[in-house]
Design a protein around this nucleic acid. Sequence first.
DNA 1: TCTTGACATAAAGTCAAGTTTAGGGTTTAT
DNA 2: ATAAACCCTAAACTTGACTTTATGTCAAGA
Lengths: 145, 145
Amino acid sequence: MFTIGQVSKMFGLPVSTLRYYDKEGLFPSMERQSGIRKFSENELEALRVIECLKKSGLEIREIKQYMQWCKEGAATYSDRKELLEKRRQTVEEEMERLNKTLDMLRFKCWYYETAIRDGNENRLNEMLPDKLPPEIQAIYNRAHE
Amino acid sequence: MFTIGQVSKMFGLPVSTLRYYDKEGLFPSMERQSGIRKFSENELEALRVIECLKKSGLEIREIKQYMQWCKEGAATYSDRKELLEKRRQTVEEEMERLNKTLDMLRFKCWYYETAIRDGNENRLNEMLPDKLPPEIQAIYNRAHE
DNA sequence: TCTTGACATAAAGTCAAGTTTAGGGTTTAT
DNA sequence: ATAAACCCTAAACTTGACTTTATGTCAAGA
């Protein structure tokens, strides 16, 4: 059993954030001793899941729903699984988009390296959009669909 | 040359967003004809870059700085390259974090598939944290650092 | 005893990135 | 000539996720 201050240090989260999460219903099973929050292993695992679901793009109120399901037991397994499957798909799509973003950034980095060497963009403007060096052309094409 | 409504349709962005971007200085070279915005190829390319930089996590005011540099010409090539290199690095790190998130989601999906088959979490609780099936264990370990 | 430090609450404030509202101008179709 | 469909601005509003502030309780140490 941990106090809010201990959990704050363990997770590197401000105490105010943990209280905010609690207020928003993210720890529906948390207990108290004379008004003071007691974080058990259950809440620590909840926090790990919260961090994961937040990174996956879920909003607080949807995380609250998930935590509520966790509290309700076996009857909600398939709801929880469905939510997580959707998240997995969203994150996979997000990764693909990020790969395209990365290609755009890689291309632009090469572009400016070349512009710096040349002192201007004249040669680059002649190469665009389809007379770039082969490896660069491949990156450029991926970045522009 | 395009009007704001045409560009809105081309990029699937609300007119209000384009005006907001303009107000924030994201099109420092855009011209007007008797008060009406004229989007040229220059602004369309700017918009493609804006979408890319936004996905990479850049804030509007940093994108404004980049667009300002573009307007200033050859003297700012290295500033622009530096900004883009940093972005590339940030996005690469972000992808790694997302991979861990994805492992967590994959593990949880498997977890609930199993819980649904078993009807409870008893067997799962006995397997955790280090007696999981080999491929699942690998995912689980990656997800937990 | 008195201050320090941890805990608590409720309510207001902050921030970014838009969106909405309320006003008004110009061109085109009926 | 009037409505529809564009364009414009300034300013207020919204949203989500916190953070800050003001206030108060309680236990331990100097």
